[in-house]
Amino acid sequence: MIKAYRILAVIIAAEVVIQAMMIVFAVAGLGKYIDDGNVVDKAAMEDEDLSFTGVVGFMVHGINGMMIIPLLGIALLVISFFAKFDGAVKWAGIVLASIVVQVFAGILAHDAPYIGLIHGLNAFILAGSAGFASRQAKAAEVGAPATTVAA
């Protein structure tokens, strides 16, 4: 179970990287679309036929952030109870809590753009927490003493 925990934590950290890549791809594509003389207004945003290079980035970012990553976080927390190493549950809980913050910040940023700053910052917290959880699991796998972090 420790190996499963470690792999899930790595996947969550990698998903954060994918999220960043997808949203930049989408925004860059939207910028080029506008530079090419196209207009984006409320009607265009609601049009299911809106198409530009990178539009898939918005879809991937939304699906990953609203469904895939939360499911991975829940799975990590469940597995943490069976992983049986110091800090497993604590770090899985921190990862899941940062996922919850990320989802709500992403949703709320549509109405309050400054919350997008929290969404961006929290992505680093999520990736760091998941990476740290993975390193803790790796240390437990090889029997090395886990890194301690003052709480």
Rank of each mutant, 00 (worst) to 15 (best):
G106A: 01
Y5H: 11
G106H: 07
F58P: 00
M66L: 14
V103D: 03
A13V: 06
A44I: 00
G37F: 09
L50V: 01
G116L: 02
G128T: 14
A130V: 03
A140Q: 04
A83T: 03
G31H: 05
G131F: 14
H61D: 07
F25S: 06
I7H: 14
A140I: 05
G106D: 06
K84V: 04
I94M: 08
A44D: 08
A26R: 08
V149Q: 04
V24I: 11
F52R: 12
T53D: 06
V101R: 07
R6H: 12
Q136E: 05
M45T: 15
S134F: 06
D47P: 09
I11E: 12
G31F: 07
K32H: 12
L77E: 03
G87Q: 11
Q136F: 00
W91T: 00
I7N: 15
L108R: 02
A130P: 07
P113I: 08
S51D: 12
Q136W: 00
V27D: 15
A75Q: 04
L117V: 10
Q102S: 13
K90F: 11
I94L: 09
F85C: 04
L72Y: 03
S129C: 13
A146N: 10
G143K: 11
R135K: 14
A13N: 02
G29W: 08
V95C: 05
I11F: 12
A97W: 01
G116S: 13
M21R: 09
V39Q: 14
T148L: 00
K84A: 06
S80V: 05
D41S: 07
A14T: 14
I34C: 04
D111W: 14
I79Y: 00
L96N: 03
D35Q: 14
A44T: 14
D41A: 10
G106F: 08
M22S: 12
Y114E: 08
I18E: 04
V89R: 09
M22C: 11
I107V: 15
D41Q: 08
V55P: 06
K32T: 15
A150P: 03
K32Y: 04
Q19H: 09
G29Q: 06
K84D: 05
I23V: 15
E15C: 10
V24Q: 11
I107W: 11
A137C: 08
I63G: 05
L71K: 00
S51R: 15
G54V: 13
K3A: 12
I18R: 00
N38F: 03
G37W: 07
V17F: 10
L126K: 09
G143M: 13
E48R: 15
A112M: 14
M45W: 13
G116N: 12
L77W: 09
G29D: 04
Q102M: 10
A14K: 13
A105F: 08
V95K: 05
A140P: 07
G87T: 06
V101P: 00
I7Y: 06
G93A: 02
F85L: 01
H61E: 03
I68C: 03
G54F: 10
V16S: 06
W91D: 01
I12Q: 04
V101A: 02
F58T: 00
Y33M: 01
V16C: 05
N122I: 01
N122F: 00
T53K: 09
A151M: 10
L71I: 07
A44H: 12
A139H: 05
Y33N: 07
E141W: 05
